[in-house]
Design a protein around this nucleic acid. Structure first.
Lengths: 127, 127, 127, 127
DNA sequence: GTGGTCTAGACCACT
DNA sequence: GTGGTCTAGACCACA
């Protein structure tokens, strides 16, 4: 799994890490039961601080994507076992609502937005 | 137009203001040529800092949603005339990409995501 | 409000801080809308690190006890407005279950446990 | 007796083991004089580290719940004969105090807390 | 002036 | 060897 960090981005590093792991899970590069690199190892690997990786892992744990145990490291959790499954959908709906409003305010319509969605779905799920 | 500020949200107040104006434009509560409340009036009205409203208006101006002239206040711009058309779509695509990945990592599939999108489109554009 | 920190306790300092604030809220020393001391001020006051206080405040925020905003400081939230209200009760029930089991395993019975509970209720709510 | 280890809990495994044995004693699944599984057998059975089981047994022995002799394994002790009788009650009272404070800070009152207690007592001692 | 983020380095608990 | 906690100090975003 490759996560590239952009230190100049306005997205915090820990959030970039979180998204990278989520992308890895979505792309099946990380399967349930797989061990993530240790906090220290990933920190050295990416050239960021240990605590930054730790925060990203803690967020992923709180959202149910991974489990962590003091002496055992971090492991990808089973899908659908997270504590944030239902609220996760609610959050995604909220963000979609906001995106559609921005799109409409910029002059778009429903069909144009659906096109954007289909394009991205094809990128991820294939055609 | 009503903008409600959620003090508990982790979204910055200036960003909530920005989104509120965009929502007003999208919902046709704010039409091109309409005048927005003055920075001072809105700040007093919402009980937030002057600088906060100022920042929100500046961002809206940078994205082409409104025009500002010293002395004449802020006015809603014509749709499609802004600087944000092309970059706006790119940003929306990026956010969609991320949302789909999170949704898939949480166990969702393409059809389920399309359902979420259609639900939100119906909320905004009507059925 | 007074919070005394025991650095030798096996309870983490941030957890002692969290409990102290909760006790303050329960004892009506902290009412909804009251401002908590700033992270820096409390850290200096108690002789602990800024980040330790920050973590305690973040936990209290996640449990809905307080709200925090970058330039505004921390404020005691309205009761019953937290995100953890229902799960809070579930957690308390779980801990009660465990305590009763330990009490029974040590030779206690239901009446004796109720006595312990009534004693503590009297300490907090008065007789 | 069945002890299920929750890998996602933030409670250390040795503590989950300790609580499991205490629950077994409280539920009369483990009677005074019964032999517990050997450290090795339980470790293999649960898929946890030998040291972890060892630590749990040591804690149970220190609290007077079990007795251990080299070669003869661990045996459930007589009730009320342990070293944990007096200190156990003090610890339980302390935890009750904390729970009541959290409950009150979340908007509860004495009657509501007593209801929670009675519900859990009924679960364990029957109605 | 406030909290948020990041870095650096230490010690401890757990497996 | 792993993550958890704490300290120390810096810079930035927000109000």
């Amino acid at each position: 799994m490759i996560i590239d960090i952009d230190a100049r981005s306005d997205v915090p590093i820990y959030e970039q890490l979180r998204r990278g792991v989520i992308a890895g899970i979505a792309n099946d590069e990380l399967a349930p039961g797989d061990r993530l690199p240790s906090v220290r190892a990933l920190a050295v690997d990416l050239g960021v601080n240990l605590h930054t990786v730790n925060k990203a892992y803690a967020l992923l744990r709180d959202d149910g994507y991974i489990t962590m145990r003091r002496g055992s490291g971090a492991v990808v959790a089973e899908r659908g076992a997270g504590a944030a499954d239902a609220p996760g959908d609610a959050r995604i709906e909220g963000e979609l609502h906001r995106l559609i409003l921005e799109h409409k305010a910029g002059g778009g319509d429903a069909a144009a937005f659906l096109d954007l969605v289909r394009t991205q779905l094809a990128r991820i799920y294939g055609e």
